[in-house]
Design a protein around this nucleic acid. Structure first.
Lengths: 101, 101
DNA sequence: ATAATATACTAACATAAAGTAAGTAATTAA
DNA sequence: TTAATTACTTACTTTATGTTAGTATATTAT
């Protein structure tokens, strides 16, 4: 009858990262702001439809911000927020793990 | 025409962790070996079908081992391998992030 | 002895998420 | 004028996940 639960914050974290593409998008954005096209080129196996959907989710979760630069032609960039950048240590540790196993 | 790619090891890592439930299962197993039922109780929103499927994937990826103890009744436990335990720093960093955001 | 409960699953089917292909609108380049 | 680029969206198919029920073996309760 022990019913200790998982930490809900941790569960929320995995509702994001436990979705396909999300981690890779964040990883790429850790190298700096990027345009839609940049990411679709860097992750060619992901479709535009998915990228568009993930961007919306990450924006809603306040992990990225969408910047519109009213140049001609207009330029749109996606950038990590402080919260998004906070995932760097996670990604770094995962990279270490991936390298060593 | 720049075509630097993502690290394939990193991509592989996210093929696992970028699936629903995988991260939570690993997280729970970091507290020690567990039986099927233990985990299904700790993660009640996950169905048995998914747990069964994830166990097979994690075993195939050599992140967990399945131990069969021929007692009566038989006891089956799932335990992290060294590779699986290696994910602890990743999970720890994610916990920190989850707590601070 | 029979029924109920427990564990560790599997099978069948429904729904949700992701993949695929094509299209759109605004702009610029050839 | 036609083609190309960017940042998407739409419609449709396939795959993943959810839901419910069931199986096999064993133990416990009545």
């Amino acid at each position: 009858m022990e019913d200790y639960q998982l930490c809900p914050k941790f569960e929320n974290a995995f509702e994001l990262l436990g979705k396909r593409w999300t981690g890779l998008i964040v990883h790429v954005l850790l190298t700096g702001p990027k345009r839609f096209k940049d990411i679709s080129v860097l992750i060619p196996s992901m479709s535009d439809r998915m990228l568009s959907e993930r961007f919306k989710e990450l924006e809603a979760a306040e992990i990225i911000v969408r910047h519109v630069y009213p140049e001609t032609p207009v330029r749109i960039e996606y950038e990590l927020t402080a919260k998004g950048k906070g995932l760097k240590p996670v990604m770094d540790e995962l990279q270490k793990w991936a390298d060593s196993h």
